[in-house]
């Protein structure tokens, strides 16, 4: 039973970054800007947040107020993610640049920048930023006895502030997209910007908003990923930005479906890591390195799903096309 609890809690902790980043990608794409830079934004957000946590740890503020420090680190991650995403917004919206190439540039920049800065700050060769252990929420925070039972494992083994915040952000993202005037306008800009402009919506501003929201969510997602991995930040988010793109497509650019596909993808990641200890999985006798097989599966499933859904794809119609006021 403890294995089951372990798998469920790990799936949740890995689904959190995937969902946040995929929601970010959704906001950007539904405003009409393809955001290939999610991976890079995650790296920058995680880098700045981890440095923040480290400095809190050294100053003694962190151990004294762990969850407040964590919350501040998340804000730092979100803000730096937004600042970094401005680079994409500027190129894609003002300069009408090729969005995929711009995103590729940011993805090249971010990990290199992270390594160079970490190297310069911590000294040569020390390229991993250690995350302090006090950020985890434990039973003691609720006045409970520590234990190793099923519910203890399920709830507290991998419980971080990012999880409840992600749940709040999920509902906020859903409401913002479907229940507000802003959301309707944003979606209009991704479907038919000329029509949106003709009724007085500022397409440029809406697209900036879309990209900035994606920077906000992807920045937090970067920190959430780093926490989930648990071994500190080494200038990489392991391709989760790209995986989040797959989650977004798999989720048809819709929040609820994105949540579902994030859990689905996270489950495969966890199975890949724990496939030896899960009893009900098929055992391929004599096959080595089965984790590669399970890690490959989400990508293959995405491709198969794309074959069947692309004819009726829900992808925003105007994504990837720079909006030019002059052309009608």
């Amino acid at each position: 039973m403890n294995i089951l609890a372990n798998i469920i809690s790990l799936t949740i902790v890995f689904a959190v970054p995937l969902m946040l980043v995929a929601l970010g990608g959704m906001y950007s794409e539904r405003s009409g800007v393809i955001n290939l830079a999610l991976e890079g934004i995650m790296v920058i957000g995680a880098l700045c947040a981890c440095f923040t946590l480290q400095s809190f740890d050294k100053s003694g503020f962190g151990p004294a107020h762990p969850q407040l420090s964590m919350f501040l680190a998340m804000i730092i991650a979100a803000v730096t993610g937004m600042v970094f995403s401005l680079l994409l917004a500027f190129a894609a919206i003002n300069l009408k640049a090729d969005q995929t190439i711009g995103g590729t540039a940011l993805n090249t920049f971010a990990p290199a920048f992270a390594v160079v800065v970490t190297w310069a700050v911590q000294g040569q060769g020390l390229t991993t930023i250690q995350i302090p252990s006090w950020i985890r929420i434990t039973q003691e925070n609720f006045g409970l006895e520590p234990g190793n039972g099923f519910w203890d494992m399920l709830l507290f083994k991998y419980f971080y502030l990012t999880t409840p915040v992600a749940i709040v952000l999920f509902f906020a993202a859903w409401i913002l997209m479907y229940k507000t005037r802003f959301g309707l306008r944003l979606r209009a800009c991704g479907e038919h910007p000329q029509a949106a402009d003709s009724v007085g919506i500022n397409v440029y501003r809406m697209r900036y908003a879309g990209v900035l929201i994606s920077g906000f969510l992807a920045g937090i997602g970067g920190l959430a990923y780093t926490i989930a991995v648990g071994s500190g930040f080494s200038s990489s988010v392991g391709g989760y930005g790209f995986l989040a793109l797959a989650v977004m497509i798999f989720g048809n650019w819709k929040p609820v479906q994105i949540l579902g596909s994030a859990v689905f993808f996270a489950l495969f990641k966890v199975i890949a890591a724990y496939n030896q200890s899960i009893p009900f999985l098929p055992k391929f006798e004599g096959m080595k390195d089965q984790s590669s097989l399970y890690q490959m599966l989400p990508y293959i499933v995405t491709m198969i799903v794309l074959i069947f859904t692309s004819k009726h794809s829900q992808a925003p119609k105007a994504e990837g096309i720079p909006y030019d006021k002059g052309s009608r």
Binding site: D98, Q99, L106
Partner: peptide, 9 residues
Amino acid sequence: AVIIYLAAF
């Protein structure tokens, strides 16, 4: 990365 970014536009 800067070179790619500039090439984008």
